[in-house]
Design a protein around this nucleic acid. Structure first.
Lengths: 357, 357
DNA sequence: CTGAAAGCGCTTACAG
DNA sequence: CTGAAAGCGCTTACAG
């Protein structure tokens, strides 16, 4: 047999081993179903030719790609990267690969991505959003594979959901700052003017504002500032804007730790003491918030848990091969207030001693 | 025609439009080659059926998947995420999708990933490493598609390379600290004991140590500490270890800004003034280093430029369809010293006034 | 335990 | 500008 110049196929392997392609296919997919002797002959041929199976052809035949499409706002945000990591780890043993796309928080980009990804026939779709264009929703609905919306608690889920209520996070944040005795309370929220929108962040702001109003406080300092996605600079600049509007603000909730830390740095530059002069509460429990001085108080989310739960849900769904037909599941991973060093009782509360609980 | 329960195929569209599948294929791939009338009839059928083309089948026929495999150490590191973002943006107009994998800085994981990805027949492979297992090197060599090693300056490139010399970064870092008059100079390097290894970081340390020796200084405080990948905590802990070994150290180069910032926080906790008591120089020019107080001096790398250059190289390679046969290119994006607020002349230098340049 | 036949849903390479 | 035929490289679904 002359050496091959083209890439060897299963046919080449089968000829060299003196078996049918079916037997080669079995050795690779399900070795136990082939006799030991035949198996070793096939494996030797595979080795000798340097055969690499073609899963594109395999996928077309079997109608399974072993690919999961993951649509995230951005990978630059460690929390989403952590979710992707955790998801990868759960899917890996079953030999699933992640096809990742970024929307940069844009609905039109999400739709574009879906249009690019769905033709590649992923076995499932994980999407970090519960707000979609009409077309995107339809595409997901008709995809014929399980869809998992993550990082939120959608009112009208497409299919499955793994996340938490951003609205409730905002409410809990407000309750905490109120319980510390603060009255002049504000928030550094995401801008709402551009093409890019952080709807989850907006939900947190809504919950926060609602809780302020319920407590009889003003929500006029719930600011929406700058472009999405927020970078460290958002904290700095939105905080400067806040100070012009409300120089005597006592406590601040930021749309994310990224923003909260930026504000903290701005406080250091301006000589504003945190938490003595100002309480600062972030969101997301980012790594740097545990290390900075003072350590950042935050509304903690377990980003890895979201990836793990979504992955395990998919494993169940894909292996039961009831597939997309399974009853929609909804998993809430919750959140928790993490009090560290940037939140403290109000001045008044401190001066008078602790009157109320 | 009865409504379809299965997913519509190109055949269904062609029948509804009264044309051959070839015409449907042309309308989708190359609309100009079809008459306007036929085209609109086909598009109407596509619309009516909600037809989504199957690119798995398409890829098998055309022998092109329009997928680029990207192997990165971790996405949790913003610099690699930025590279991935930039790469995506260049490839998007040509309708390429990224298949991303993480090695967690492990050679065996890289090999495993290659084994999982190559059967999916990516049109190119981008890998953020120039150190591979023997098997992995062979797999890349025989893949038959362009391979781009990024974030380094490999001695023996597999194929193409886009990056910079980590060794020279280390040397330049040392030269800078020496030129500031420091003599007791150390480094916070990555551990070398575990399965996970940061070979690029180790190269920076090697260059750094070499430059110290060339200047007649001791390299005994070039520490290798902890597990890879380094987190913020690495800076804190390795700095504590450094202080036990060399309490009077004057200047420190860290394997990354992540580590440098951790050390900076530890300095704040211990009341060590930066840069008055200690100069601190990072690597990577991360976002937070531009925002923290004091702002971090660093050896800056343009992570996005690496992704962009790799993407543009691939576009040339894939469209010339000389493909893997093209002459290997090697692109150096360079690096630059970014002096901010954590590096300053040595005490002695400051006391005596500036003697030498 | 093994194999021959058919087919997955497209595109290539002609041909007219 | 359009189409019939062949085939990409596997797996499914039988059959023995």
């Amino acid at each position: 047999m002359p050496p091959l110049t083209r890439k060897p196929t299963m046919r080449d392997v089968s000829r060299l081993a003196g078996v049918s392609t079916m037997t080669v296919s079995r050795v690779l997919a399900d070795p136990e179903t082939v006799s030991r002797e035949t198996r070793s002959r096939v494996l030797a041929a595979v080795e000798q030719l340097g055969y690499v199976p073609d899963r594109v052809a395999g996928s077309l035949s079997s109608r399974r790609t072993n690919v999961v499409a993951a649509i995230l706002p951005t990978l630059t945000n460690v929390n989403f990267a952590d979710t992707a990591h955790a998801l990868t780890e759960v899917l890996r043993p079953a030999d699933y690969q992640l096809l990742i796309g970024y929307t940069m928080y844009r609905l039109d980009e999400e739709e574009r991505l879906l249009r690019a990804m769905l033709p590649r026939r992923p076995d499932a779709v994980v999407v970090a959003s519960s707000v979609h264009t009409k077309t995107a929703s339809q595409m997901l609905l008709r995809a014929g594979v399980p869809v998992v919306e993550i990082w939120d608690n959608p009112g009208q889920p497409i299919d499955h959901a793994v996340g938490f209520s951003n609205y409730e996070v905002g409410r809990a944040a407000a309750h905490h700052l109120i319980s510390l005795g603060h009255r002049r309370i504000g928030a550094l929220g995401p801008g709402r003017d551009g093409e890019a929108r952080d709807f989850r962040g907006e939900d947190r702001m809504k919950g926060f504002a609602a809780a302020l109003r319920e407590a009889g406080l003003s929500d006029e300092w719930v600011l929406h500032f700058g472009d999405v996605p927020v970078a460290f600079d958002h904290g700095r600049q939105s905080f400067a804007a806040m100070l012009e509007r409300a120089p005597d603000v006592e406590a601040l909730f930021a749309v994310s730790d990224i923003s909260a830390w930026g504000a903290l740095m701005e406080c250091q530059r301006r000589g504003i003491r945190v938490p003595d002069d100002l309480s600062l509460l972030g969101f997301g429990d980012f790594d740097f918030g545990r290390q900075c001085v003072p350590m950042l108080s935050t509304m903690g989310i377990d980003a890895r848990a979201i990836g793990t739960a979504a992955g395990e849900l998919l494993m169940r769904l894909l292996h039961d091969d009831s597939g997309a037909a399974a009853a929609p599941e909804r998993i809430d991973v919750g959140f928790r207030l993490i009090e560290r060093e940037t939140t403290a009782p109000s001045r008044k509360r401190r001066k008078n001693g602790r009157k109320s609980s």
